[in-house]
Amino acid sequence: MMTDRQRERLKHRIAAICAWLVAILFFFPIFWMVLTSFKTELEAIAVPPTVFFDPTLENFRLIEERTDYFSYALNSIITSVGGTLLAMLIAIPSAYAMAFNPGRWTKDILLWMLSTKMLPAVGVLMPIYLICQKFGVLDTRIALVVIFALINLPIIMMILFNYFREIPKEILEASRMDGASTFNEITQIVMPLAWGGIASTALLSIVLLWNEAFWSINLTSSDAGTLVALVASFSSPEGLFWAKLSAVSTLACAPIVVFGWFTQRQLVQGLTFGAVK
């Protein structure tokens, strides 16, 4: 017979093994994609699948030769960071005002903002496309930056509002007694206190924009194309060239996945509106 303690330890060990198995299962497709990117096309579709093979960099070389990976990557960085900055610029003063000076409609306004996020983009694709055409900004980064800022603004507002609300009002009142202006209030007191919240909101927004597919595919082609568009361009004519597809996918996802690993703690804070510590 096992003692209670032994049984408890056995249970822990089984739980740990299960956790490892589940984690490997979840990660396996990504691992397989990266592995495939180092195979030749023939090895990629071999049945049974090859696990041991001579890794080749041929796919990556071909991609570098045929497309300009770095210009796509640069577009992704500029549009996701630019869209985030623009949205933050609009959202910080607004969320600040709503949190410290809430009106009767504040709650409704915030929920309305969030509801705009639920509209299927495809419903308004034609108008937006025509407007961009009219202003001659189709396939430009600036159009994507503006649209990215707009699509993330509701979520950013919501998160920042919740962060700002957690700042005790007494601190602000004290500073006001000392004669601080609103500008000073924001820059010297609110920003330093909410800095963690602002940073995690920005990180989350960058991740979401990096992976945004609809607008980047429909509004860009060669000039402002992001990595999402690059992958999409590889998917249709070369759907069966798995090794190349895997290589380009690996290149497109690696930056943001690594970024996500390093910032996971801040990301959670952003995602839960700061509610879950």
């Binding site: 979840f26 497709p29 990096w210 597919a213 992958v231 998917s235 759907g239 996945v257 996500g260």
Partner: peptide, 23 residues
């Protein structure tokens, strides 16, 4: 384990779909 588990969330939806569809 934690890093492995959360990774799929950072993969682009297009890559995710292509990966499952093909491989």
């Amino acid at each position: 384990v934690r890093v492995l588990l959360i990774s799929p969330f950072f993969i682009m939806p297009t890559v995710n779909a292509l990966l499952w569809k093909n491989m």
